[in-house]
Amino acid sequence: MQDDVLTAGQIRAARAVLGLTISQLAIDTGIGLATLKRYEAVEGVPKSRKGHLETLRKFLESAGIEFIGTPDDGPGIRIHRTRPDRAE
C-alpha cells in the first residue's frame, strides 16, 4: 500500500479500535475537525492536499494499527495494541 493512502473506512476503523473520538484524533494529529469529518464521510480514499493522510497514517501506526490491503482490494487494519501513546 502506498505510504499515505488510507481509505475512509480504515480511518474510521482505526479510530474506533483505539477508542478515540474524532475530536481527540483532531487534537492528537493537529488536523482540523472538519477535515477529519470530511475524510470519514467519503467512500474510498479521501482527497487530501496537505499531507494529512500521511500524518494520520503515521499517528495511527504509532498507536499500533497496521494498514493492510489496497484501496481497491481488501483494505483493512491489523491491530497490534489497543491504545495510542499520548502525552497527558
Rank of each mutant, 00 (worst) to 15 (best):
V17Q: 03
R15A: 02
D28F: 04
R49N: 14
R81I: 01
T7D: 07
K58N: 15
K50A: 15
H52Y: 13
G44F: 03
A63F: 01
G74L: 12
G51S: 04
A26D: 03
P46T: 10
V45M: 06
Q10F: 01
I68E: 00
A8G: 02
T55M: 08
G64M: 06
T55H: 04
M1W: 08
G32E: 02
R49G: 15
R38T: 02
I27P: 01
Y39F: 15
R49P: 02
G76I: 07
V42C: 15
G74F: 12
A26H: 04
D72Y: 08
E54C: 05
D3T: 03
G30Q: 02
G64A: 12
R12H: 01
G44V: 02
L33R: 06
I31G: 11
T55G: 07
R83C: 01
R83L: 12
S62R: 10
R81G: 08
M1H: 10
T7H: 01
I77M: 04
Q24F: 00
V17F: 05
G32A: 07
D73K: 09
R86M: 10
E61T: 13
I65R: 04
M1P: 09
T7A: 06
G76M: 04
L6T: 02
A41E: 10
G51R: 00
R83S: 13
P75C: 09
G51Y: 02
L60K: 03
I68T: 14
R57L: 08
K58L: 14
T21V: 04
I27G: 06
S23N: 10
P75F: 11
L53G: 02
L36P: 06
G51C: 02
D3H: 07
I68D: 05
S23D: 13
E61I: 03
G76Q: 09
K47V: 12
R81M: 11
L56Q: 07
I68S: 06
R81H: 14
E54D: 04
I27T: 13
V42P: 07
S23M: 09
D3V: 06
G74M: 12
V45H: 14
K37Y: 12
L36V: 06
P84Q: 00
K37W: 09
D4E: 09
V42W: 00
D28G: 00
L33E: 03
D28A: 09
Q24E: 14
G64H: 11
A14C: 00
R38D: 15
A26V: 13
I65G: 11
K37C: 10
E43R: 12
P46E: 03
R83T: 13
E43A: 11
A63Q: 07
Q10S: 04
G44T: 05
A16H: 11
I77C: 09
K50R: 15
P71T: 04
R49W: 14
K50L: 14
I79S: 06
H80R: 13
R86V: 15
H80C: 10
A41P: 08
E43N: 14
G64P: 07
E88L: 14
